[in-house]
């Protein structure tokens, strides 16, 4: 083995882990991030246009990355930040925004009807591809439980964003408020073939 080859291998051994670390940092190293499989409940929800949505097939048949969060229309603090992140992603993606599916599930199904949800999306300049869904309290509970994100009282909810990769149907779970660069990185990673 020549000295040049040895030096190249040394560089390779040093740099590859470094490169891998950088990637982890960009796509999750700065916040808690786990990957899990979830089984979608077969429930009928209603979106902001009053259309019924069969949730299981809506999610599972998507060939696009899905970003999903739990919010409610009159939330004062963390939901607007989560929604600002979604709005920012759509804005930054521009024409590519149609390649990601954004789903917000209400945790206040008594109050959040299609009119409330439509107004909310309008306030956040939502583009097509971002659905806000409500349903019966029992069905919303089933969805929360399916994602291991059951929130019995909306006033003590917590931030959670889930990203589904269309490649394998697995979900990345982010339990913090993150920057729009982080959301973009998660979207890219989920969508990368």
């Amino acid at each position: 083995m020549t000295s040049q080859t040895t030096r190249f291998l040394c560089y390779l051994v040093t740099l590859v882990p470094l490169l891998l670390c950088t990637r982890a940092e960009a796509a999750g190293g700065k916040y808690r991030r786990t990957v899990a499989d979830y089984s979608m409940p077969d429930v009928l929800l209603v979106n902001q246009d009053g259309q019924k949505v069969r949730f299981k097939s809506f999610i599972e048949q998507s060939d696009q990355p899905v970003l999903l969060d739990f919010i409610y229309g009159t939330c004062t603090t963390i939901c607007p930040i989560l929604s600002a992140g979604f709005a920012s992603l759509q804005r930054k993606l521009g024409p590519e925004a149609s390649k990601v599916r954004l789903v917000s599930i209400t945790i206040d199904p008594e109050h959040d009807n299609p009119r409330v949800m439509k107004d909310y999306l309008k306030r956040f300049r939502a583009k097509p591809g971002w659905d806000f869904m409500t349903g019966s309290r029992a069905d919303i509970d089933r969805v929360m439980r399916a994602f291991d994100a059951y929130i019995p009282n909306k006033m003590s909810h917590y931030q959670i964003m889930l990203i589904r990769s269309p490649r394998d149907g697995r979900w990345t779970r982010v339990m913090e408020l993150v920057s729009s660069a982080d959301i973009m990185a998660e979207y890219r990673q989920a969508g990368a073939k």
């Binding site: 600002a84 709005a87 920012s88 306030r123 300049r125 729009s180």
Partner: peptide
């Protein structure tokens, strides 16, 4: 880094 308009919240 998330730009928002203050009428969102």
């Amino acid at each position: 880094d998330t730009e928002v308009e203050a009428d969102m919240f």
